[in-house]
Design a protein around this nucleic acid. Sequence first.
RNA 1: AAAGUCGGCCGGGCAGCCGCUGUGUUAUCGCAAGAUAGCAGGGAGGAAAGUCCGGGCUCCACUGGGCAGGGUGCCAGGUAACGCCUGGGAGGCGCGAGCCUACGGAAAGUGCCACAGAAAAGAUACCGCCUUCUCCCUUGGGAUUAGGUAAGGGUGAAAUGGUGCGGUAAGAGCGCACCGCGCAACUGGCAACAGGGGCGGCACGGUAAACCCCGCCCGGAGCAAGAUCAAAUAGAGGAACAGACGCGUGGCCCGCGCGGUUCCUGGGUAGAUUGCUUGAGCGUUAGGGUGACUUAACGCCUAGAUGAAUGGCUGCUCUCGACAGAACCCGGCUUAUAGGCCGACUUUUUCU
Length: 119
Amino acid sequence: MTGANHAFPPNLRLKKAAEFKAVFANPVKSSDRYFTLLAVRNAHGHPRLGLAIAKKVMKRAVDRNAIKRTVRESFRLHPEMIADLDIVVLAKKDVLSAEPAQLKESLCKHWQRLSSRCV
RNA sequence: AAAGUCGGCCGGGCAGCCGCUGUGUUAUCGCAAGAUAGCAGGGAGGAAAGUCCGGGCUCCACUGGGCAGGGUGCCAGGUAACGCCUGGGAGGCGCGAGCCUACGGAAAGUGCCACAGAAAAGAUACCGCCUUCUCCCUUGGGAUUAGGUAAGGGUGAAAUGGUGCGGUAAGAGCGCACCGCGCAACUGGCAACAGGGGCGGCACGGUAAACCCCGCCCGGAGCAAGAUCAAAUAGAGGAACAGACGCGUGGCCCGCGCGGUUCCUGGGUAGAUUGCUUGAGCGUUAGGGUGACUUAACGCCUAGAUGAAUGGCUGCUCUCGACAGAACCCGGCUUAUAGGCCGACUUUUUCU
């Protein structure tokens, strides 16, 4: 366990509107009752993560922040599962009623599924 | 001790590991801008919320005033300002500490006042009461004519002052006393208002969160404001150079039209930077003020993100943790909130 493997610097994030657009245009999808993930293969040599938590789904800012943290944390701690993809995570309503452990498990499955399907 | 009133404060704690984001500093790389790494130190709230008021700041508009529209509304003070706060007055609630109030004007005008009731606004008075005319009838009483009344009854949220005494045919502010109301002075108070006395003798029902009238206040938009830099693409104007070039027109030349290169100006999209945190700031002490607040000295720097940081895991511990996440910044208001702490005061009970 070295620190370098679990960092989350800015270059691993999707930032620009154009980058999000590219993912939404022609993605590989993976979804369950908590999340919908969209992914596209990139040429950067590392994965990149973007979050899209709709205000409509989660009204309170506290809830939105909490979900973003959970997703980022999972992304950061499991780089070995994730191939070089641009991924956008969309949250669903059921996230609010879920246990933290269930969310983590769900996210791990998504990382592996997307990595094996986008080749 | 119990019940209660008011004001203030806190919003799990500690340790380790892994992350995120500013700041300072050191090292390495780089012409530089900067990048990477190490170390140190900072990193959500009392409401950050609702966006309901008030201001700062920015851009636009602007001579001043009026109309319209909106806001506000006992008085005085505080403040940058306010619809906020403080103190005072008035009315209401509570045994009390205390709490509540959209609290200007109904004699400028208009409207409305359901149901019930005779009548809902300057009374053609329903049941009545009293006097009187005529008739019936055994005194008593009944029917009826003309008039005087508003005490009693009944309706209503509200009925044209209230209670008592006098007075009267019966009654009535008709007269008197007290209360209430109105008027002009006086006294106290900056004022709202209060006080006691005088005069009037009932005239003036309620409703202005109904229109309205009166006093005071208000230009509009908002940090996605605004400022700077500025690709690609589109492409405006000017100047200089070349005018020996190409294309079109034409049989050819001249000419005319479209093209060239360089520079300057302009435009400002994607994007980037900035605005962005030192401020009507906080703390302590001293002075002024009943208080809100204010003055002075000294000390402190306390989030600044931009797909948007302030978190995750583990261990220990307690009373097992609510409402909830900064987005330009302040002052308020309102709403949400587990649990806990402190102070002042009130009422009741017990003990000494």
